[in-house]
């Protein structure tokens, strides 16, 4: 098949970008979308042109590195599918396809289709963990976990941190990403001691990074390659509100306990 690509090219964070048109000829429908880009890049190098830069690594939909806005949709037309797992059979011969990077203030473009998503790491560093120093753990079966809770925690933990939710959101909100981590750890007994502080610190970091707020568009769930439901955002909000309302009291109680 033959396609016409409109690709966002941007030399670096400082330079302005623009769309450049490329012809992708003789593409097999069994190729993945990124293999199509590989072929195009090989041809560009042979012509002495700069290949299109894009993030990718595992190419099996789990590392979360890849992500291209394809015809206006993060990760492209196939639901619950990362860019690397999208195959060319999802397109038709002669199609014109537009490729853009994730667009969000908190995800500045580094080059072409590559953006800086380190804000996500900083949100996790702010509270997306259980403080369990290595070596300090009790027997894994000492605390039973209801299967339903473990399953729900898993559903949330399956987030790959690709950032498609942010790219799709009209507010560039990171709520789905943050809510997934808060739900994952909040569903498990191991996550309870830090649950309230986690909600406060992760939300504060999300705001500090320049992500927008959630106004219930639901675009995030629609593009999430792991199908993380928007309902998790309600859990985050519940934890956050509870944590905010009880903040002073929890400190007072802790103080009393120490004093007592």
């Amino acid at each position: 098949m033959n396609l016409t690509l409109q690709v966002w090219r941007q030399k670096n964070a400082q330079s302005p970008g623009r769309f450049v048109t490329y012809q992708a000829a003789d593409i097999s429908p069994d190729m993945s979308f990124l293999e199509m880009l590989d072929v195009l890049n090989e041809r560009l190098i042979q012509k002495g042109e700069d290949p299109i830069a894009f993030d990718h690594d595992c190419r099996e939909g789990i590392c979360g590195a890849c992500g291209v806005v394809i015809d206006g949709t993060a990760h492209g037309p196939r639901r619950r599918t990362t860019t690397c797992q999208l195959h060319m059979r999802s397109f038709r011969d002669g199609d014109e396809v537009t490729l853009e990077p994730w667009r969000a203030r908190a995800f500045p473009v580094i080059k072409d289709l590559i953006v800086d998503r380190s804000a996500f790491d900083r949100i996790i560093a702010a509270g997306g963990f259980v403080s369990a120093p290595i070596g300090s753990a009790p027997d894994g079966n000492a605390i039973p976990v209801r299967k339903e809770n473990a399953d729900l925690a898993f559903d949330a933990a399956t987030c790959i941190g690709c950032g498609a939710c942010v790219a799709a959101c009209p507010n560039a909100s990171a709520s789905l990403f943050v809510a997934a981590k808060i739900t994952h750890l909040g569903m498990l007994p191991q996550g309870q001691p830090e649950r309230m502080e986690r909600a406060l610190s992760m939300v504060a970091q999300m705001d500090a990074e320049g992500f927008g707020s959630c106004t219930n568009h639901g675009e995030c769930e629609a593009v999430c390659p792991k199908g993380i439901p928007v309902a998790f955002i309600a859990r985050m909000n519940a934890d956050f509100i509870k944590a905010s309302l009880t903040k002073g009291r929890r400190v007072a109680q802790a103080g009393e306990a120490t004093a007592g």
């Binding site: 299967k147 473990a150 994952h184 191991q190």
Partner: peptide
């Protein structure tokens, strides 16, 4: 043990183990 303590959601049976 360590992974469970860190919040890894391993598969569980209905009894919670």
């Amino acid at each position: 043990y360590q992974c469970v303590a860190l919040g890894v959601p391993f598969a569980r049976e209905y009894g919670g183990l």
